[in-house]
Design a protein around this nucleic acid. Structure first.
Lengths: 110, 110
DNA sequence: TATTTATATTGCAATATTACGATATAGTTT
DNA sequence: AAACTATATCGTAATATTGCAATATAAATA
């Protein structure tokens, strides 16, 4: 029915999924990469970088912000965006766990 | 219009987005976590683990497989699934890059 | 080969996402 | 305050995702 059964999963599973989902769009990957490159910038800079209209970029920024992956501060009449360590720290452990597992395991059936 | 403008982004951006998107659902997080726990198992085991019907689980497994995050091998008349190192290695570098950046940077505006 | 077991596919309804034009809002400058 | 600049929100169309019942497929076993 198009609706995810979140209530049947753990908070951790839902939180990790929300974070991964927020990262799961090429425009949002591009925004993250740009913020790493320039450290911080205003929304207009990202509009100039991406092949998308201003409202679309604004929407993507909102999703990244809601997920806790970026932060925005008013700076004059513009808004300065940068990465939010908190969000990325939450995924970090998950991938470290996976990588540690993959380095040690002997593939059994695959 | 509901359609992602993939052609305007780089292959790397599209690939990372596809991988993150595949991880971005609590059922698929649960599948990955279960595979880490038991190393490998058949589809039926996952159906028993998750609060979802068999066709739904099958669909999630397909998405993880298409993204290159899991592999499946026939084992009798069942199919044995386990994690696919290849897919996870592709995201690894992205997060390592982000983490290295976040550890070094002095937050400038946020 | 008929039956059973395990998984995949089809078809469909409900909901979510993506994209953008038009417009609103908020701060800045003149 | 009026005009300008920067960003957010609204409304809407097109498309994608989620979930499952029904059914198909494929291998194992009787």
């Amino acid at each position: 029915m198009g609706i995810t059964k979140s209530e049947h999963f753990t908070d951790e599973q839902n939180e990790l999924a929300t974070l991964a989902k927020a990262i799961g769009h090429p425009a949002r990957i591009a925004i993250i990469q740009h913020l790493i490159k320039v450290n911080s910038c205003v929304c207009g800079d990202i509009v100039n970088e991406l092949p998308l209209a201003q409202p679309t970029v604004s929407q993507h920024l909102k999703e990244l912000k809601n997920a806790g992956l970026i932060k925005g501060n008013f700076e004059g009449n513009a808004i300065c965006y940068c990465l939010n360590e908190e969000g990325f720290n939450k995924i970090k452990g998950f991938f470290q766990h996976i990588n540690a597992y993959l380095e040690n395991k002997k593939n059994q059936c695959c």
